[in-house]
Structure formats: C-alpha cells, structure tokens
Design a protein around this nucleic acid. Sequence first.
DNA 1: TTGGAATGTCAACAACACTGACTTAAACTC
DNA 2: GAGTTTAAGTCAGTGTTGTTGACATTCCAA
Lengths: 169, 169
Amino acid sequence: MDRRTSSPTSGEALLFLTDEQLKQGIEAMFFAYRGFTADPDRILADMAYGRAHHRAIHFIGRAPGTTVNNLLNILGVTKQSLNRVLRTLIADGLVESKIGRADKRERHLNLTLAGRNLEQTLSDAQRARMRAAFRDAGPDAVAGFRTVLEAMMDSEMRNSYARLKDSTS
Amino acid sequence: MDRRTSSPTSGEALLFLTDEQLKQGIEAMFFAYRGFTADPDRILADMAYGRAHHRAIHFIGRAPGTTVNNLLNILGVTKQSLNRVLRTLIADGLVESKIGRADKRERHLNLTLAGRNLEQTLSDAQRARMRAAFRDAGPDAVAGFRTVLEAMMDSEMRNSYARLKDSTS
DNA sequence: TTGGAATGTCAACAACACTGACTTAAACTC
DNA sequence: GAGTTTAAGTCAGTGTTGTTGACATTCCAA
C-alpha cells in the first residue's frame, strides 16, 4: 500500500512501526497461535473431536443457555458447519439443547456434566500454557498483550469479546 | 490441572493470573487471530489459493533460497501437505525450485517476480491492520504483546522465530 | 558396494470450512 | 387471518488443508 510508514513521520518515536517490526509481530502471532492450540489439539486428537468442537464447547460453557444464532455470531462460521459439530456433541451427551420458553423457535444450549468435564480438561491444558506465559512476562506485558490483541480485532469481534468479559466480572 | 493458581500465592500481586483473566486472554487470542487472518484471506479467496499458500509465500520471501525441509520445520506441517501447496505455486510461476548444488536432494526455493508481487499485496494488507493496532496501543503495549507471544510459543517455534528475527536485523 | 538415512513426490483419505436450496415451526405484521 | 420474516435444521456438493502410506532419488558411511 504505502511505504510511508516505513520511515517514521515524527522523528524516532515510531521505530516500532517499521515494516520489519510489523513482520516480526506477524510472525510472533503465527508461532504463538500454534502453541496456543497445541495442547488442546493433542487431547482432542485421541477422541473423535477437533478444534471446532473445542470452540463450541468453550463458548457454550462461557455463555450457558446461549442460542444457536448467538453462537454462530461468536464463532463466525456458517450454521451448516456449526450444526455438524453440535449434532455430534448433542448425540454424545456433552451438550443439551432446550426449546426456548419465550420464543419456541430458539434452542438454548448448555453443557451437560460430561460436557463440563471435557471443557475443564481442555481449558486446564490451555490455561496452563497461558498462565506460564503470563507469569513469565509479568503484569505490564500482559496488559500490553491484551491491548494490542483488542486493537487487532474486527469491531464485531471486539463487541463479542467485551460482552463475554463483562458478563463474568 | 490445579486450582492453586486461582488464588494468588503471594498477596494481591498475581491477580492477573486468575482463571478468569486467563480465559479472557484465551478469548482475546481467538478473536484477534480471526482479525489477523481476515484481510489476506479475503484477497486469497478470489484466487485459487488459501492460507497455506500465504504462509509458504511469506516464509519463502522471508528466507530466500531456503530448502523444503527448512520450510517444513517452520510451518510445522507434513511434507506432503506442503508439497501440494508448493506444487501449485511453482506451476503458477510464483515460486521457483532449484536443485541444490552441494546436495542434489535438496530443493532451494525462491519467489519469482510475480511471487514477490503477491507477497507484497498480502503483506501490505496484513501489515496495515497490524500497524493500526500497534499505533493504537503504543510502544509499551507492543513490547508486552511480543513478550507474551514469545513466552507462549513452543521452544522449537521460539528458535525459528529468533532465527528469522536475527537474520534481518 | 551395499544398506540406511535424508529429501522430495504421488495418491488416497479425513476434518472442517463453504455455497445453495430447501423444510419446519413459530413469531410478527398488516 | 393471510402473508412475511425469523430461527433452526437438513441435504447435497465443493474446496482447502491437514493426515498416512508407498515410493523414487540421492547421499553417505560401514
């Protein structure tokens, strides 16, 4: 697009915005995301589940009673794609789907006991790595980490993220 | 694993390590990664390429003359998976593969002019978002962002990351 | 010189995303 | 009350990207 930002616009203060610095940020994101998913992936590999199941379980556990449509918006996939995952989770007794009381078209999703157990197992593995990284980096770095990630999200994602955050604070 | 770290071990200083804080970090990572890949994905969708092609192009551009095996280690996929991607890129004239001089088993990979052009287009889109996020967050936050991501990597990934970083500084 | 290790290729398959077309049931609206 | 919209689910087909397994070529060392 523009090479303008390669040469800082206001003195030496913007050296962290050089193309090289940005590329390193891109690569850090790539390698870190691999680590981020590695532990749950290893656990899931032994079962008949994959990363898509993990995501569904995570967000149902996070927002109990959520509707299919809401989950769709959070996950950003098509309903056909989510439905395939949800069908197996319900069939295997990890998730239960209840018809809405106010609006009977809606289905409210909740984790069963078995679902909560799996969620806990996966979450523990992922949190253990996140905890180690946070502890190594320290509180200031963690605050910066979150600030940058939040700025990197699409605005709809930022809304979903904020809603989840607020619902538990 | 353990609920021990939920209650800080040394006073109030470890509040950023609560399970809730860690879950928010996990969700931030999930939503941010979606934003991170969104722009190049949109560009790639119009061509016959996907995210895997982007990754290959990125790292070949980053380490010209690299071997297939080296690329394999960086990308963390099977050689069969990489080969499919590489084959189409070579057939389409974006990447050229030269038989090694010292060791004829090796193939050295380089971007062609067309390959560099595509790399530039994709990189520009991704950097634009990263740049906006970095600028919004400021240098201190960016430093923290990188520290946490680095701590989150597997050690082999951290080595690959460091090697790329050093080779261009 | 022969056998093993390294490098890369071809083929088949599985997971997970997508589009498009459709059904059912409930809710809304005029 | 009829017609439209919304929520959810289904069926069929396709594409990308990962996997294993089998195999050819090249190099090196016993």
